[in-house]
Design a protein around this nucleic acid. Structure first.
Lengths: 134, 134
DNA sequence: ATAGGCTTTCCAGTAACTGGAAGGTCAAGC
DNA sequence: GCTTGACCTTCCAGTTACTGGAAAGCCTAT
């Protein structure tokens, strides 16, 4: 299904500017250009945009995203190479999942400790300074 | 326990340059300066650095980190305010956890599909273009 | 046919570092 | 006590990844 840049951007949850930027730097190219020069995106390009959005959101650099996208496209690369690189990234992601859980717990603790009334009786710095994770 | 900037950086897992930068912009200030002007960090500052590292790693901006750190410190803010802001962030983090799971599954699928031999028989774009998440 | 809302390119600005120069500090060894 | 090397300081320039705005072209709808 073909669409304009703003539709693609909307679907991927990215600003149009960013999608245009990704096109400029050759990270995610539009599938074609219209007669008038408008960028045209299809659902493969859209999947790539969504993937990049997700990966960027978790700290992978644009160059790392390029590599990850390349894993899917490079028919010259051996499948064991792809497996190796992807498996390495998986390990990193699992570490990130644990980190995110820590951040979650940290804030949850704060929410729980705040009684929700109007007295400033939150655990000032105790969540940070405390020994919840030591 | 007091320490120099490089020790604090090492403990928090941040580059020394970044810790100095956070000091410059007033995000995480050192607890003191030595006679010679060296930044001195204690374990409260260290907790803050670790917290910022974690939050930054998950896409929270420096300004958002400043707000989150402020939640612990601002004795003027009512506890219900803190609760509201922190609870909102919690919702965002939970969304991130689901997103990260998607990214994880996406790569895991690729690893699984790659047989690990030397033929380039990886699912070229099928992981992206496929309907695993539709 | 013209107004409104798209699109294009280009260029300048911002956020958050990051590297490097120039110089001060400090503990260790001679 | 002096030097060497590994720290530290500030300052300033460069990088990454956008982001905003100008000037102009396109497209649909009244």
């Amino acid at each position: 299904m073909e669409m304009t840049i703003s539709d693609a951007a909307k679907s991927a949850g990215l600003p149009t500017k960013t999608v245009r930027y990704y096109s400029d730097i050759g990270l995610v190219a539009p599938v074609a250009r219209s007669e008038a020069g408008y960028r045209i995106y299809d659902d493969v390009a859209l999947k790539k945009l969504s993937f990049v959005k997700r990966a960027r959101g978790f700290g992978f650099s644009v160059e790392e995203c390029r590599e990850l996208l390349g894993l899917y496209e490079d028919t010259d690369r051996s499948s064991s190479d792809v497996r190796t690189i992807a498996a390495q990234r998986l390990i990193e992601i699992e570490a990130k999942q644990r980190e995110l859980q820590l951040l979650h717990d940290e804030l949850a603790l704060l929410v729980k400790a705040c009684k929700g009334n109007d007295r400033p009786d939150c655990p000032i710095l105790s969540g940070l300074a405390g020994d919840a994770y030591e």
